[in-house]
Amino acid sequence: MRVLLVAFASLLALVGCEQSRQQVHLSGPTMGTSYNIKYISQDGLPSSDVVQAEVDRLLEEVNDQMSTYRPDSELSLFNQSTDLEPFEVSPQTALVVKEAIRLNGLTQGALDVTVGPLVNLWGFGPEARRDKVPSEEKLAARKAMTGIEHLSTEGNFIRKDIPDLYVDLSTIAKGWGVDVLAEYLNELGVADYMVEVGGEMRLKGLNRESIPWRIAIEKPTAEERSIQEIIEPGDMAVATSGDYRNYFERNGVRYSHIIDPQTGMPINNRVVSVTVIHPSSMTADGLATGLMVMGEEAGMAVAELENIPAMMIIKTDEGFVERVSSAYKSYQN
C-alpha cells in the first residue's frame, strides 16, 4: 500500500474565495484504489465529462496491459506462458518493464519486479492467503522462480529465460498510470494540475489560489492519520512507499508486504517509509520501493550518489527520525 499524499489547496487564507480560480476535480476507482485529478479551468479545454471519460479509458488501458489481477492482461498472458521465445506486448508495457530493469540496477537489485511468486506466497498478491508463514522448502521453490536477470526486453518484445518467471509491475505501474494521465493533460494544454493515483502524484503549475501545489506527507502510523511534513515539489512527481499498513502478524512477528529479493522474506529494517521526488511518477514509484528495501545506509548512499531527492522515516527506540538526501532539502518548507 502506498502512503496517502494529500494536496493542500493552501495552508493560509492568502486570498478571498472570490479571487480563487475555478478548479475541476475528477475522481474514480482504478487499480484496486482510486484516482484524483484537480486542474484549473481555462479556455479551450474539453468539458470535464469528456476529460473524465478519456481518463477512465486510459486507466483501463493500463490495467489491460499490466494488471496481474486480470487474467487476460498483457502481463498476465506473459506470466501464464512458459514459452522462452520473445513475447510481443504494447510499447507502453515494454517501456515500463525496461524502466523496471534499469531501476533494478540502480538500486543494486533491491527493486525486482520478478518477486511476484514470493509476494503471492506471503499472501500479498492475487493468491491472497495470509494463513501462515511459508516453510523454507516453499520459500526456496518460489525463490528459484525469480530473478531480474531472467527478464529482458527488445523493442516491443519481452522475454523470459526460465519458464516460471512471473513479473509483477505493481511497484511501478501506479506511477506509470499517473504519468499517462499527466501527459494527457499536457496534450490538452492544461497549465495547472495535480494527478494522484493510489497516493502517487504528479504536479504542474499553481493551485486555485495561484500558489505552488503543496503536498502533505503522512506520518507512518497505522493508528491515526497525521502529517509528517509539507513539501513544495514544483513541477515534479512524488511517490511514497511504506510498510506500516499492509502487513500481517504471526506469533508476535510482523511481516511486511515489501519483499527483499535477496532473502525472499519481507524486509526487516528500520525504514518505515521512503518518499522520492522525480520528474516521472513511474520512476519515483520504483525508487521509493527500491530504496526502502535497501535500508537506511545503503539506500541513502544510492540517493546521494544518484542525486535523488529522497526522505526516509526511520523507526528508533525513541520514536521516528527523519533523514533526507542533499537533493531533497530544497523541497522542504
Results as ranks from 00 to 15, higher is better:
260 D>C: 04
263 T>K: 00
289 T>W: 02
242 G>D: 07
197 V>T: 10
311 M>P: 00
92 Q>R: 14
321 V>R: 14
276 V>P: 01
83 D>W: 01
86 P>V: 11
159 R>W: 01
245 R>Q: 14
67 S>N: 03
236 M>I: 03
302 V>W: 02
152 S>K: 13
305 L>S: 10
162 I>Y: 02
173 A>F: 03
273 S>R: 01
211 I>D: 03
193 Y>L: 12
275 T>S: 15
234 G>C: 05
271 V>F: 05
235 D>Q: 05
269 N>Y: 08
315 K>N: 13
260 D>A: 02
295 G>M: 10
192 D>F: 02
94 A>N: 02
120 N>L: 07
193 Y>C: 07
138 K>M: 14
68 T>A: 04
85 E>K: 15
289 T>E: 09
115 V>A: 06
268 N>E: 15
208 R>P: 00
160 K>D: 08
297 E>Y: 06
258 I>T: 14
46 P>N: 06
68 T>M: 03
72 D>R: 10
134 P>N: 09
28 G>R: 09
313 I>G: 01
14 L>S: 13
86 P>E: 11
46 P>I: 07
86 P>Y: 08
1 M>L: 12
268 N>V: 11
221 T>H: 05
130 R>H: 04
36 N>E: 15
32 G>S: 09
131 D>V: 10
85 E>N: 12
278 H>L: 07
195 V>E: 08
51 V>D: 03
3 V>D: 14
118 L>H: 02
304 E>P: 08
201 M>E: 10
41 S>T: 04
139 L>M: 08
35 Y>M: 08
240 T>G: 08
266 P>T: 09
333 N>I: 12
261 P>L: 08
260 D>P: 02
231 I>W: 01
236 M>P: 03
101 I>Y: 01
206 L>V: 12
232 E>T: 15
162 I>E: 05
12 L>W: 03
10 S>H: 11
36 N>G: 10
146 T>N: 09
199 G>C: 10
55 V>I: 15
52 Q>P: 01
210 S>R: 13
71 P>L: 12
117 P>H: 05
159 R>C: 12
148 I>N: 02
256 S>I: 06
174 K>P: 08
96 V>T: 12
266 P>A: 12
104 N>H: 15
128 A>G: 00
46 P>A: 09
58 L>C: 02
33 T>M: 04
99 E>G: 00
331 Y>M: 10
189 G>K: 08
326 S>H: 10
149 E>K: 12
19 Q>C: 06
220 P>N: 09
247 Y>K: 06
158 I>E: 04
5 L>G: 06
194 M>V: 14
280 S>T: 07
318 E>I: 06
258 I>F: 04
23 Q>R: 14
282 M>C: 08
150 H>L: 04
209 E>D: 13
223 E>Y: 05
128 A>S: 13
122 W>V: 03
195 V>M: 07
159 R>V: 06
296 E>L: 15
167 V>F: 01
286 G>K: 05
235 D>F: 02
107 T>R: 07
29 P>N: 13
74 E>A: 10
110 A>G: 06
9 A>L: 14
193 Y>K: 06
283 T>P: 00
94 A>R: 01
252 G>H: 11
283 T>Y: 08
76 S>T: 04
219 K>T: 13
277 I>V: 15
323 R>S: 11
263 T>C: 00
173 A>G: 03
